[in-house]
Write a protein that binds this DNA or RNA. Sequence first.
DNA 1: GGTTGTTAGTTACAAAATCAACCATTAGCT
DNA 2: AGCTAATGGTTGATTTTGTAACTAACAACC
Lengths: 144, 144
Amino acid sequence: MQHDDFDLQDFLPYLLNQAAEASSLEFQQVYKDRYGMLRTEWRVLFHLGIYGRMSAKEIGQRSKMHKTKISRAVQKLAERRFLTRTTDDQDRRLEWLELTTQGGKAYRDLRAIAMQYDAGLSQKLTDRENAVLRQALRKLAQQG
Amino acid sequence: MQHDDFDLQDFLPYLLNQAAEASSLEFQQVYKDRYGMLRTEWRVLFHLGIYGRMSAKEIGQRSKMHKTKISRAVQKLAERRFLTRTTDDQDRRLEWLELTTQGGKAYRDLRAIAMQYDAGLSQKLTDRENAVLRQALRKLAQQG
DNA sequence: GGTTGTTAGTTACAAAATCAACCATTAGCT
DNA sequence: AGCTAATGGTTGATTTTGTAACTAACAACC
């Protein structure tokens, strides 16, 4: 049982997780300290900021977050007046979510930081690594 | 605010997380359903399986898991008789962890599945992507 | 030899994620 | 129309994590 040949550092699920965790640490600090947000919350914020008005369901499809997470994130963001919810006229189960002016401001602020942060991460890698990495990650991200 | 240029799918912390989550889903099913283990638990199990007897502290250093997580994982694994704990003679704060026969069996079983699973993931990528990906992830994983 | 500071590991409590059951509404079928 | 199933979203109970405070043992210094 001593020092066998399996290398944990080469096992993709583990390695990916290590990289994901390490590389989101600092950004987490920002949305946490600056806006008191959770990961789920900035994600919802970003979805709305990027794609504009959408429903919780759509956010779920895109982000693969579970609907309860989204539901609670939306609640918090609504409480803080970062978004508004309007029930659809045709289908009254459906709710349209949209950033408020304040929400938009928070989004743009965080987006700027995200872009800067991402640039910093990219600097750790060569151009080729960056390109191939993102390509590969996208393949892995689509489950199946 | 509609459809701005920022791409969430290109933001590394997000992309990494999506890939990590997607690519660990099936393996998670295995250690969960088959051994009722948590992520922290199989990680501890693997550390001991790979490196042999070690202390909780060492596991923490290698895995970057917080010591409370490790403490709890060790407890569970000990309850299930997957490992034994022996206090060090020199330094009685220190505890040596070691897999039992049963623990070793579980480890080898899961390791086999992990290897197979990893091979499956690798198949989604070209050889070059595989090499570059792992290289890049290792760089990102070392924080700083 | 006693005081202070560290270290390995645990525990208690709060925060968050998960899972299942739950409304309310709409769709589909007969 | 009336019944059943499916859908969008919420809620509550349980599990898991995170944070801080805590032991117990050791180290270092005076």
